[in-house]
């Protein structure tokens, strides 16, 4: 359906997007996963026609986006990260504007707005001013604003930012309903559990480059270890010492200390765990808990992007 080929975007000397290529198939939900400043929003801006790439191209349905911007915009619905709503107006009035921008008017517009409001669970609040809505309701209305013209592809830029768990769940139910209706979704987030729950395929981005493009199962296979162990110590300082001791042991793929806990990835849980626990016992360090787990998307993410803190890079945001 949509293909991005060798996309590039620079802000001054910084490469925000560096040779990114991927494809979204019809009916698929693709997750764009990356830390802050990775280039997710910039990629979305180029896909939705808000920003022209410095290099590369976007095609939709086989047609170049550059030559058919208007057609592209008609087939795409964008849910911006910032709330794109007029708070002084009612929910219905907001949707009437957004539908009107796509040429809808009269009864079709009213019906479309009613359907969108029903989908996001705001049908009974249609005539209330948005400023009286909770943060979660505003987020849901923000999604509804992209649905009026019945787009084939919906681009969602971190649509759950700043909402409580209940609202997040409600938003997820809305998006799952859209999936059931056959809509194609491109979803940017840095929440692993969101990507795992919703996405058929995940693109991991960092420093403007694609690090991985696969299903969740495929991504997990990329990890050198599929099992992980977390050992919590009574003494928070003990974790650092244990990491030093066990990191080089056979069967331990990686080990790191996090707030008094040692987290290790093991190739073979049975043999590896026995050796590690034996070493810990030799050191005489009392443990408070030991947990084993399957590797998850977060492990993949950390494995691919590293542990360094990311601040929002300047110029990374879309206009």
């Amino acid at each position: 359906m949509l293909r991005a080929t060798h996309l590039k975007k620079e802000f001054g000397e910084r490469k925000a997007v560096d040779d990114v290529s991927f494809e979204i198939r019809a009916g698929e939900t693709l997750g764009l996963l990356g830390p802050n400043g990775a280039g997710k929003t910039t990629i979305l801006a180029m896909l939705s026609g808000l920003m022209q790439p410095d290099g590369g191209s976007v095609s939709f349905g086989g047609h170049s986006a550059r030559n058919s911007q208007e057609e592209l915009k008609r087939r795409i619905g964008l849910v911006p990260q910032d709330l794109a709503l007029y708070e002084e107006l009612s929910a219905a009035a907001n949707l009437q504007l957004f539908g009107g921008l796509y040429g809808l008017s009269g009864r079709p517009l009213a019906e479309s707005a009613a359907r969108a409001l029903e989908l996001v669970g705001l049908g009974e609040r249609a005539n209330e001013r948005v400023k009286r809505f909770s943060g979660g309701m505003k987020r849901r209305l923000n999604i509804a604003g992209a649905l009026l013209h019945d787009p084939e592809l919906i681009l969602l830029d971190e649509p759950t930012v700043g909402v409580d768990p209940q609202s997040r769940n409600a938003i997820f139910e809305n998006l799952e309903e859209l999936k059931r209706r056959g809509r194609t979704l491109l979803y940017t987030t840095h929440y692993m559990e969101e990507a795992e729950r919703l996405c058929d395929r995940i693109l991991i981005i960092d420093h403007g480059r694609v690090l991985a493009d696969d299903t969740v199962r495929g991504l997990l296979r990329r990890l050198p270890a599929s099992k992980s162990v977390r050992i919590e110590f009574d003494d928070p300082l003990a974790a650092e010492r244990v990491v030093t001791e066990v990191a080089a042991m056979p069967g331990v793929e990686s080990a790191r200390a996090e707030a008094g806990t040692v987290r290790m990835d093991l190739a073979d849980l049975g043999r590896g765990l026995a050796s590690v626990l034996s070493r810990v016992a030799d050191l005489g360090l009392p443990t408070s808990s030991i947990q084993t787990a399957e590797a998850d998307l977060e492990d993949v993410f950390i494995h691919l992007t590293g542990h360094a803190l990311r601040d929002d890079a300047p110029g990374a945001a879309a206009p």
Binding site: K73, P80, L83, A84, L85, L101, G145, P319
Partner: peptide, 15 residues
Amino acid sequence: SRERGIWQRLRSAPL
């Protein structure tokens, strides 16, 4: 409005 999300909504429309 240029500094708000609404600007992206307007710009993403076929206008």
